[in-house]
Amino acid sequence: MAKHSLFYKIYNAGPILLLYYLCISEVDTNLEKVFEIFTLNFQIILIYFWVLKRPEIMANGHIFLAGLINDVVMGYPLGISSLSYLIIIFVGTYVRNKSVNTTIASDWFTFLMAMIFSNLLFFSLLNNFSDLEFSYSKIGYNMFFTLFMFPIFWLLFNIYQMSLIGSRDA
C-alpha cells in the first residue's frame, strides 16, 4: 500500500485511536458480567505489542496523554496510568533494542516481565499514596487473564499489521 495514501494513514493511526477510545469511552474489557473473575487490561497488551513491533505508530506522548485520560475517567490519581504505560514502553523498547528476531513465545515472556513491573509500580503507588482499597485476588485474576489473552491479541494484531500496514521497514 502506498505510504502516503489516506487508507495507509488511517490504518497506521488505528492502534493509537483504539487506545484513546478505550481510555475515554465507556467501552471496557472488564467482562465480569459474563464471567465473574474475567477482567483484562487490554491497554497494556495494545501498547506492548505496538511498541515492540512498530514503535513509530505508538508515540510516547500519545500514550502518556491516553494514560492521563484513563486516570480521569477511572478516578485514579492523575499520572498513575501514564507511569504504568511508560514502564511498558520502557520494557518494550529495551527488549526491541536487545533482540533481533522475536517469536510469540519470547514476546509472551517479556510481556510478563513488563506487566509485573508496570503493575507493581501502579499498585504500590495506589496503595501508598491514595485511600483506595483493592482486592489482591482481583489483581491476580486481572494479570492472569491479561497474560492468558496476550497470544490471541498478538496474532490478531500481527494479522492487522501484515495485511493493512505492512512489515517493518529495514
Binding site: 508515540a59 492523575l78 507511569l83 511508560l86 514502553i89
Partner: peptide, 22 residues
C-alpha cells in the same frame, strides 16, 4: 522519528503530575 519525547522525561512529568495531584 515519531518519538518527540523520551520515556525518561515523560516518567518525570508523570511523577510530578502524580505528586501534585496526591
Amino acid at each position: 522519528g515519531a518519538q518527540k519525547f523520551s520515556v525518561l522525561s515523560l516518567i518525570f512529568l508523570a511523577l510530578i503530575i502524580f505528586f501534585l495531584d496526591v
